[in-house]
Simulated scan of single mutants.
Amino acid sequence: MDSKLETISFPHLPASLPIHVALFRNVQNSAFLRQQLLAGNADFEYAMIDASLVFSRAHAMAAVFRAMNDYLNSRLKSHNVHSEIVLSFNPTNNIAESFRKLGISDSTKDLLIIKVSVSPDITHDSVATHLASSVEGVPMSFDDSTLSEIHDINKIKKLYKLGALPSPAVKADPSQPMLGAAKDRLESSLIGAIALRGS
Rank of each mutant, 00 (worst) to 15 (best):
L5T: 15
E6C: 12
E6Y: 15
S9F: 09
H12E: 14
L13F: 11
L13S: 11
P14G: 09
A15V: 00
A15Q: 08
S16A: 11
S16E: 09
P18N: 06
I19C: 12
I19N: 05
I19L: 14
I19D: 05
H20P: 03
V21D: 00
A22M: 08
L23T: 12
F24E: 10
F24Y: 15
R25S: 15
N26I: 07
V27I: 02
V27P: 05
V27K: 00
Q28T: 14
S30I: 04
A31L: 13
L33T: 07
L33M: 12
R34E: 14
R34P: 08
Q35G: 04
Q35A: 08
Q35I: 06
L37M: 09
L37W: 08
L38H: 08
G40H: 05
A42S: 14
D43R: 12
A47N: 11
D50F: 09
S52W: 12
L53D: 00
L53S: 02
V54G: 11
S56V: 13
S56Y: 06
A60R: 04
M61E: 01
V64A: 05
F65E: 10
F65K: 11
R66G: 08
A67T: 02
M68T: 10
M68Y: 02
L72P: 00
L76N: 12
L76T: 09
N80E: 09
N80R: 06
H82K: 06
S83K: 06
I85C: 10
I85N: 07
V86S: 03
V86A: 06
L87K: 13
L87I: 06
S88I: 00
F89K: 05
N90E: 02
I95E: 04
E97N: 13
S98R: 14
S98N: 13
K101S: 13
L102H: 03
G103Y: 00
G103S: 08
I104F: 09
I104T: 13
I104N: 07
I104V: 15
D106G: 00
T108L: 09
D110W: 11
L112N: 01
I114D: 09
S117Y: 05
V118K: 07
S119G: 03
S119D: 10
T123W: 00
D125S: 15
V127S: 02
A128V: 14
A128W: 04
A128F: 07
H130P: 03
H130Q: 10
S133A: 15
V135F: 00
E136N: 14
G137Y: 11
G137N: 06
V138H: 01
M140D: 03
S141L: 07
S141N: 10
S145T: 13
S145M: 02
S145G: 05
D152C: 08
I153N: 00
I153H: 06
N154D: 12
K158Q: 12
Y160Q: 03
Y160T: 07
A164C: 04
P166E: 03
P166H: 01
S167W: 03
P168G: 00
P168F: 12
V170Q: 03
P174L: 04
M178A: 11
L179C: 01
K183I: 01
D184T: 14
R185W: 02
L186T: 09
S188A: 15
L190Q: 01
I191M: 07
A195T: 15
R197C: 13
S199E: 04
